[in-house]
């Protein structure tokens, strides 16, 4: 997902009986679906895990601007250009909302940015794949946003108030993102031979990276178990991946495109598709920085940050001058 492999305390989940009164009170509120707010008492591990998870999610939105932004100047019509620009702009907005949610936990946006740029914090593996053709913009909207929505919809109910509110706003705004992607795919899949080829090629390249977005199976992960007890993770990775595949297969069929998985088969018994796992070695490589465009992505973010320093400093200096002269006048 946008936040993949977030580590929690690494210890097992405590029972209520094992907890000190404060933590017990906290856990009971979480269990009763009462939101935890910034000034409420919370376990250190909860706070740390949330910072990692929300931070990673925010970074993903920001880095996620790049693969789609890559096509804004080349979009084929004025309308497509405006739609794409509005969508990539939304992603900046979503990054902003999420950073603000993390900031309520006592970390600053600048600190998180420095951690992203130094490689200390990660972003989703999916954004280390390039967008080569216009159909990729369709595939990203359809598959990548489709996968993201799977995770974000349940997170609206997450236990941490500011995170939950950010997710509610994001889900509302994102409702058009997946549709615009599918709309591009429909045009391409019903278009010329070249367009059809482009569409199939985009699906071929983005299918497995999209499945990787949910992260490796975490059925036996202590981190996931703790995060689920804290309600900052609502479903297991496998549950969401299955749901995504079940939803996407008929959509691909409607387009007349073939999902690049020969083993894909409806399983009547489980009421879902059987499908092939992505190559998890590739996933770990990409996460570690060995993806095709990892360097380009971080370099672009570093450049934006470094080149922008004088602007941020200049505007702040001006604001301080104004404040000082106002105080002097009073």
């Amino acid at each position: 997902m946008y936040a993949q492999m977030v580590k929690s305390t690494g210890k097992g989940v405590k029972s209520l009986e094992e907890m000190e009164p404060e933590e017990r009170h906290f856990q009971e509120k979480v269990d009763a679906d009462i939101r935890i707010e910034p000034r409420d008492w919370m376990p250190e591990g909860y706070k740390k895990t949330l910072i990692r998870q929300i931070g990673q999610h925010a970074h993903s939105e920001i880095v996620g601007q790049l693969p789609e932004g890559n096509w804004i100047t080349r979009a084929p019509t004025l309308e497509r250009k405006m739609i794409l620009l509005a969508k990539v702009q939304d992603e900046a907005g979503h990054g902003l909302y999420l950073y603000c949610a993390a900031e309520t936990l006592g970390i600053s946006r600048d600190e998180m940015t420095e951690m992203l740029l130094s490689g200390k914090m990660k972003y989703s593996s999916i954004f280390n794949y390039p967008t080569l053709t216009w159909a990729d913009i369709g595939a990203v909207g359809w598959l990548v946003d489709g996968a993201a929505i799977m995770n974000q919809v349940p997170l609206q109910r997450t236990s941490y108030g500011p995170y939950s509110r950010a997710m509610i706003r994001i889900c509302k705004e994102e409702s058009f993102h997946q549709r615009q992607g599918y709309d591009i795919m429909m045009k391409m899949a019903k278009g010329s031979e070249a367009q059809k080829r482009m569409a199939q090629d985009a699906l071929n390249r983005f299918w497995y990276p999209s499945l990787m977005m949910f992260g490796p199976s975490d059925a036996n992960s202590v981190h996931s178990e703790q995060s689920m007890a804290w309600k900052i993770k609502i479903n297991t990775n496998d549950e969401l991946r299955q749901k995504f595949v079940d939803q996407t297969v008929p959509q691909a069929e409607y387009l007349g495109l073939t999902i690049p998985d020969e083993t894909l088969k409806w399983n009547e018994e489980k009421g879902g598709y059987d499908f092939a796992e992505p190559d998890w070695d590739e996933f770990f490589d990409v996460l570690k920085g060995a993806g095709p465009v990892n360097n380009d992505r971080l370099e672009a973010r570093r450049k934006a940050w470094d080149d922008g320093a004088w602007v941020r400093e200049g505007l702040l200096a001006h604001a301080e001058k104004k404040r000082a002269s106002k105080v002097a006048a009073e």
């Binding site: 920001i62 804004i72 702009q89 900046a92 950073y99 672009a300 320093a309 941020r312």
Partner: peptide, 13 residues
Amino acid sequence: SEWCGHAPVLEED
């Protein structure tokens, strides 16, 4: 539009 994703600060982007 070339600035999208590359501005000095998120709000400006």
